[in-house]
Computed example of a mutant assay.
Amino acid sequence: MAALSFHARSNSFPAESHPLVSEIDEQVCRLRQSQAASTSSSISHKLNGLQDLYGIVDKLLQLSTTQQALANDQKCFNEVLEGSLRLLDLCNTAKDALSQMKESVAELQSAIRRRQGGLEGETRRYLKSRCMVKKAIQKALKGMDSKKSVSSNNIETVAMLKEAESAVVEVLECLLLFISQTSSKSSSWSLVSKLMTNQKPVCQENEFADVDASLKMNNSADEVQVQLKSLTNKSGEEVQVHLKNLQPCIQDLEEGVEWLLRRVIKTRASILNIHNL
Results as ranks from 00 to 15, higher is better:
Leu63His: 02
Ala209Met: 02
Leu50Cys: 10
Ile56Pro: 03
Gly121Asn: 10
Arg130Tyr: 10
Pro14Gly: 06
Ser214Glu: 14
Leu70Glu: 00
Asn219Leu: 12
Leu61His: 05
Leu63Thr: 14
Ala213Gln: 13
Leu108Asp: 04
Glu223Asp: 09
Gly117Trp: 01
Phe6His: 06
Gln204Trp: 03
Glu223Phe: 06
Val105Glu: 08
Arg114Met: 08
Leu228Phe: 05
Glu205Gly: 11
Leu61Phe: 10
His242Thr: 06
Lys139Gln: 14
Asn153Tyr: 00
Val158Ile: 15
Lys102Thr: 09
Met101Ser: 06
Lys147Gln: 15
Lys185Met: 09
Ser41Met: 07
Ala69Thr: 06
Leu161Tyr: 03
Thr232Cys: 13
Ser184Gly: 09
Ser187Gly: 07
Glu122Ser: 15
Gln74Ile: 07
Gly83Glu: 07
Leu172Asn: 09
Leu127His: 06
Glu120His: 03
Ser17Ile: 02
Gln199Phe: 15
Leu272Gln: 12
Glu207Gly: 13
Asp222Ser: 09
Leu119Met: 11
Asn276Gln: 13
Ser149Phe: 04
Lys139His: 12
Ser42Leu: 15
Ala2Lys: 03
Val158Arg: 01
Asn233Met: 10
Arg263Gln: 11
Leu228Pro: 02
Asn198Ala: 11
Glu223Cys: 00
Lys216Thr: 03
Pro248His: 07
Val169Lys: 06
Ser99Ile: 02
Leu90Pro: 00
Lys244Tyr: 02
Gln27Met: 12
Ser34Asp: 14
Asn48Ala: 15
Gln227Gly: 00
Gly83Pro: 06
Cys249Ala: 12
Lys216Gln: 15
Met217Thr: 03
His275Tyr: 08
Gly49Met: 07
Cys91Trp: 02
Cys91His: 07
Arg114Phe: 00
Thr232Gly: 03
Asn92Leu: 08
Gln251Ser: 10
Arg113Thr: 10
Asn154Gln: 12
Lys75Arg: 07
Ser10Cys: 13
Leu60Gln: 07
Ser235Met: 03
Cys91Ser: 11
Gln35Ala: 14
Thr93Tyr: 02
Leu63Trp: 01
Ile155Asn: 15
Lys134Trp: 04
Leu161Cys: 08
Ala269Phe: 02
Asp25His: 13
Asn233Leu: 14
Lys266Asn: 05
Glu258Thr: 12
Ser22Asn: 14
Ser230Gly: 15
His242Ser: 07
Val158Cys: 07
Met160Phe: 10
Gly256Phe: 01
Asn218Tyr: 03
Gly118Phe: 00
Asn92Asp: 09
Ala3Arg: 07
Ala8Pro: 08
Ala3Gly: 08
Pro19His: 03
Val257Lys: 04
Ala167Pro: 09
Ala3Trp: 02
Arg262Asp: 05
Asn72Val: 01
Asn218Cys: 13
Trp189Asp: 13
Leu253Arg: 07
Ala213Pro: 02
Ala15Leu: 12
Val133Ala: 08
Leu90Glu: 08
Ser230Val: 07
Asn153Phe: 01
Arg30Glu: 15
Gln138Glu: 13
Met196Gln: 14
Glu255Pro: 01
Ser110Val: 03
Glu107Ser: 11
